[in-house]
Design a protein around this nucleic acid. Structure first.
Lengths: 191, 191
DNA sequence: ACACTAATGGCACCGAGCGCCAAAAAGATA
DNA sequence: TATCTTTTTGGCGCTCGGTGCCATTAGTGT
């Protein structure tokens, strides 16, 4: 019932592993899809069936984590102030088990420090922001397209990126602490 | 002294005009650089000497406006609270004479609603954010790379984009008013 | 007329990405 | 065992953005 037809030749995970290795060795821009294909042992054409674009490889299965984010926000206590709920949600979303830290740092370094990827990532961020917008809109009885939900989504992303940049700059810092610091810095600044 | 050698065949302004017309007619992605070259009456190769990339055409001479932005911020009264100075600076930077509104709206619509350009624009935004970061760092006696200046830069951009999106959605609104509204919305939200 | 200079634009090339389609490799069926 | 069905693979050829190279062009200055 399940597996008919020709078996798959590779997997998202394998491609990701190989690609990350090559990116680390030569830099993102110097690695071609053909290079990756050879190294994986698969046709170039096939790579494009696993990842829409070369830029999407570093993002992996990001879209599937967004459902988790939605759940996190939905389960926040109702009596929490909205900004606190969103902030804690963002913090939770960016928690990773200790053994995943190293690879997560590598992935984020690639995404945040490669200009090509910085640009492409906006499209991914948009989906993440939409999750926040929808949550804020629902709690305030507004539409997701309204100014305030939009603003909150954009600002939440601004804080997250600021924290991530700090985290990448100094390996000894804690991402959650930086998120808190960015938030409290902003509040003081606006006072 | 001044003009030796073969005279130029076109100008940034002319290319921009032609390109915008074609973008409006067929959509950004459906217009190739070859199309623009033909319409301008110039070689394709020459286009790339005037604009680094197709994505840069809608941004025009943006980098040259950044000096103006720097000046605007530098000339803000010292006794103004920093967040107020930055906010007013952003508002001033986005003031356009009445007769330029229509074309500015068109440009921003292109930039903010075309996915390809949304992505590319991050790189332009980075230069804009850097102006704010430097100003904030200078006033607070910090480094531009420090968390707070970074955060302020990112948040200022977040507010500006939110306002622009609202402005594009409703042609009757005033951009300056939307910037104010986004800012006050954020302050209330964080309270 | 001749040298000099700077922009032009043609050519060939690379890499991402896509449509198309024949071939491969399995399970199902007889 | 042989054939049918299903699904993935991967090769081919194309478009388009972008770049390096270089001869050509169209001016200015002497």
């Amino acid at each position: 019932m399940s597996s008919r037809g020709r078996p798959v030749a590779t997997s998202h995970a394998e491609i990701e592993r190989v690609a990350f290795r090559l990116f680390a060795e030569r830099g993102f821009d110097a690695v071609t899809m053909a290079d990756i294909a050879v190294e994986v042992g698969v046709g170039r054409r096939t790579l494009f069936r696993y990842f829409e674009s070369k830029n999407d490889i570093p993002w992996g299965q990001f879209d599937r984590t967004l459902d988790g984010f939605r759940t996190i926000l939905a389960e926040m206590p109702e009596d929490l102030p909205l900004h606190e709920a969103v902030h804690r949600g963002v913090r939770r979303f960016n928690e990773f088990p200790a053994d995943a830290q190293a690879s997560h740092r590598m992935r984020m370094r690639l995404i945040l420090e490669t200009p090509t990827l910085q640009a492409h990532s906006v499209l991914r961020y948009a989906e993440w922001r939409a999750v926040i917008e929808e949550h804020v809109a629902a709690r305030l009885d507004l539409e997701p397209g309204d100014l305030l939900p939009r603003t909150v989504g954009n600002v939440a992303l601004a804080l997250a990126i600021s924290a991530y940049e700090g985290w990448l700059a100094d390996p000894d810092t804690d991402l959650a602490a930086l998120l808190d610091e960015a938030m409290s810095g902003l509040r003081d600044y606006l006072r």
